[in-house]
Design a protein around this nucleic acid. Structure first.
Length: 336
DNA sequence: AACCAGGACAATC
DNA sequence: GATTGTCCTGGTT
């Protein structure tokens, strides 16, 4: 553990910041239909464009976080209480797996500037904790979606496959295929970037970088003191109807409800038309089917099959067509 | 073309 | 046995 991964720090920005707009959890602003990248009129969206927080690439986020730790470790004696205090990081900030602070060029010398630097650091830190919170939140969302643990070390070979498939879709990576089959999360974590590249010359480095982010997130989660509010918006403990009862295979209707409960993330794919009556509309049948396929490890899933399964619920009285039947609109028989 | 309904059968747990 | 994935036919929007 704790091995640094120099490869990550040298990865081209564009490599990681290329999420599939269709799968990305998405615009933070439900009013704008902008998903960051898609119909943006200007040519290839540049990283500098005001993309939603989402398009900020994860590594940059964590990298910035490291700056905060680095500066904090040197220059800030106490005061952690106000911030919720990462007691531990205070003493001797252990090296976060993903981060290699080398060459950050951050020193505290330069007395005159110190006060203003302090201020900047302070606000920077606030932004950073928000950003890190977002990263953790997104990872958590992925965990729920895929029904896998947050810590890659806990993944079974099946979990690894799911994660790879998901990452591949999410970031539009070239087909990775079965190069990582039979590997557990622990095996994966123990692999170097070179070993990743051997298995997947096309995108082993990117995959390795993404895994590093997950490892870092797990590391942060573990290190954060209980009651630490810094990353609270990640809502790790948030148990809002997580229908995926541990270990139990999830049912399609549960999965649909899960998506419906996160309009923030999936409102573009599926949304309530009338929550009280349990009426919902599938806005993007292909994407919902794709998510379901990923969740169930059924790469061949499509809306045709998914809808057949929904129709099976008619007889069981779980889902039905609403009184006024509309395309892609269904109704939970027992809302709530 | 995409969606809908439902039969039939297989796979999986 | 329950659930759902797959394939299919045929109808509707």
């Amino acid at each position: 553990m704790g091995s640094t991964s120099p490869g990550v720090t040298t990865l081209p920005h564009s490599c990681l910041a290329r999420p599939d707009p269709a799968l990305l959890p998405p615009s933070r602003d439900p009013d704008t239909q902008s998903w960051g990248c898609p119909e943006s009129p200007s040519p290839p969206a540049t990283p500098e464009q005001p993309l939603p927080t989402f398009c900020l690439h994860y590594f940059d986020m964590l990298y910035s976080e490291d700056i905060a730790w680095a500066t904090k470790g040197v220059g800030e004696p106490s005061q952690s209480g106000a911030h919720g205090g990462r007691g531990e990081a205070q003493k001797e900030p252990e090296q976060c797996p993903i981060i290699d602070s080398q060459g950050l060029g951050l020193g505290t010398e330069g007395g005159d500037l110190q006060a203003s630097l302090h201020l900047e650091e302070h606000s920077l830190e606030q932004v950073q904790s928000m950003v890190v919170g977002e990263v953790l939140k997104d990872i958590e969302t992925a965990c729920k979606l895929l029904n896998i643990a947050a810590d890659p070390a806990d993944w079974s070979p099946g979990n690894v496959q799911k994660w790879i498939l998901w990452t591949e879709h999410q970031y539009r990576l070239p087909q990775i295929g079965k190069s990582f089959q039979e590997l557990s999360g622990k095996d994966l974590c123990a692999m170097s970037e070179e070993q990743f590249c051997q298995r997947s010359p096309a995108c082993g480095d990117i995959l390795h970088a993404h895994l590093d982010i997950w490892k870092s997130a797990a590391w942060m989660k573990e290190k954060a003191a209980p009651g630490d509010v810094r990353y609270c918006d990640a809502s790790w403990a948030d148990s809002e109807v997580d229908s995926s009862c541990a270990g139990q295979p999830i049912h399609l209707w549960q999965f649909l409800k899960e998506l419906l409960l996160k309009p923030h993330n999936y409102g573009r794919f599926i949304r309530w038309l009338n929550k009280e009556k349990g009426i919902f509309k599938i806005e993007d049948s292909a994407q919902v089917a794709r998510l379901w396929g990923i969740r169930k490890n059924r790469p061949a899933m499509n809306y045709d099959k998914l809808s057949r399964s929904i129709r099976q619920y008619y007889k069981k009285g779980i889902i039905r067509k609403p009184d006024i039947s509309q395309r892609l609109v269904y109704q939970f028989v027992h809302p709530v």
